[in-house]
Amino acid sequence: MSGTVEQEHEPAAVSPDADLLDARRVLAGDVAAFEGIVRRWQSRLINLAWRFCHDRTMAEDMAQDAFVKVFQALKTFRGESGFSTWMMAIALNTYRSHLRKREPAFVGALTNEQLQPAGADPSALDALQLRERDEALRQLVHTLPPRYREPIVLYYFNEMNLTETATILGMPEGTLKARLSRGRALLAKRYANKTKRPDLQVG
């Protein structure tokens, strides 16, 4: 039983050719061929949604909606950008409209463990404290304005690939760099305010 589940979760190799092949089959009327695209990209789309909302159910709803939008837009894919970039841009637009409907993010009071200064000697902090502080920082990302939140989430989700992130967001790399810089400074400031430690602010 568990083997079946694991098999379904196992991420399939992401191949641009396979995506294009499946897309052609879908456009030719074979709706079932879309399942290949879903299997290859489900983990990535769910995890991107997860980074925006930190709610598993909502992340899966958002990803499902994104897949339906991708399916409906397949006929408009002209191959000017990579399939993954095109799909991520559609997903991002879908997530934006979901997040607009959502209540403003609530960030609860940080725990004592999360209030540890970030610049402290890592050897003095155990792994749990470090993880909790990182989680607090990630929660604070949700409080950023969308113009900074989206670049930060996508940039780190794309393993700090500036070019791909800029293409998905549809903005020049220079603008992206500026927003990342401003967003990170804002994040550090908010973290310092939250922990009442002005010395933690990025100079």
């Binding site: 399942e35 489900q42 899966e60």
Partner: peptide, 8 residues
Amino acid sequence: IVPSSGFT
């Protein structure tokens, strides 16, 4: 996170 079993 890992997708739910019935997601696909």
